[in-house]
């Protein structure tokens, strides 16, 4: 008990005075996010062989933060797999993650489309199969030793029983991966047992509005995250630059050979 307390204290001090309190072995287990402001807060939860729980409402900014971190991880050669349990991701949002031939960013899809409102095409029974399959795949991916980070997106069906939790934890201990569990949840319930830490997300003001020629073209609220670990909490606010997607073709257009009719 005392050892755990000392370890927590050392991590806290490490955050205040980086590079002085954690041993080299411990430091190597921490996955840096690549963004300085995030590192200060998220480092305690992004640890190899540990599970962290990222919780927020369906629209809270957690995946936006995670995408940036994934891009940085891939750029440093880490291999990441995202288990998209309900096929909600859009490929265009992630196309620039893991493109530099360093780390890989792969997505495991359900193989069939399911909506989030229980209106599955194949009846009620199958929607639980998606979660079941996702949890099974998560364990397999952790045990494969092929990925440094496994992201499990459970949407609002994030029920991890103590049995599954124990299995995942055991797999993590035998691997070198870090597991990030994404859950859409507004409740303030505590994290499931064995989680290495919990990060809560939500959108707050100020809200950035990008003005176009004839009105606003992008709206981006600020993201606030609260990290809970070992009874301690830290909060962080990050802003996201608005992005107006390029809707113009970037390749050389086919020359228009039409000519106006004479006469």
């Amino acid at each position: 008990m005392v050892q755990v307390g000392v370890a927590n204290l050392r991590r806290e001090l490490e955050q205040l005075f980086p590079g002085k309190w954690l041993s080299a072995k411990e430091s190597a287990r921490v996955l840096k996010s690549g963004v300085e402001s995030l590192d200060a807060v998220l480092s305690p939860v992004l640890i190899r062989r540990h599970m962290s729980e990222w919780v927020g409402s369906a629209s809270s900014g957690k995946t936006t933060v995670l995408r940036t971190i994934c891009a940085n991880w891939c750029a440093t050669g880490l291999n990441i797999i995202y288990i998209d349990t309900f096929d909600r991701l859009l490929a265009s949002d992630w196309a620039l993650v893991g493109t530099e031939n360093k780390g890989r960013f792969w997505v495991l899809r359900s193989g069939d489309c399911a909506d989030l409102d229980g209106q599955t095409r194949y009846g009620q029974h199958h929607k639980y199969d998606y979660v079941k399959n996702a949890l099974w795949a998560c364990e397999q991916l952790i045990r494969s030793h092929a990925f440094d980070v496994v992201i499990l997106d459970l949407a609002d069906r994030g029920v991890i029983t103590s049995n599954i939790n124990a299995r995942l934890k055991r797999s993590l201990e035998r691997s070198n991966a870090s597991l990030v569990v994404l859950r859409d949840d507004d409740s303030t319930s505590s994290s499931f047992a064995g989680s290495g830490g919990r990060v809560d997300f939500n959108f707050i003001e100020p809200i950035k509005v990008e003005q176009g020629v004839s009105g606003p073209v992008a709206i981006v609220p600020t993201i606030r995250s609260n990290v809970f670990k070992a009874g301690l909490s830290k909060s962080l606010e990050v802003s996201v630059a608005p992005y107006v997607p390029n809707r113009l073709f970037t390749h050389s257009p086919v020359p228009d050979r039409r000519t106006s009719k004479k006469g």
């Binding site: 900014g61 936006t64 909600r88 949002d93 992630w94 996201v240 630059a241 608005p242």
Partner: peptide, 13 residues
């Protein structure tokens, strides 16, 4: 020290 611009969309299917 900044995130990728824009928010990530999660579709309703």
């Amino acid at each position: 020290d900044s995130l990728m611009p824009g928010l990530v969309l999660k579709r309703h299917v």
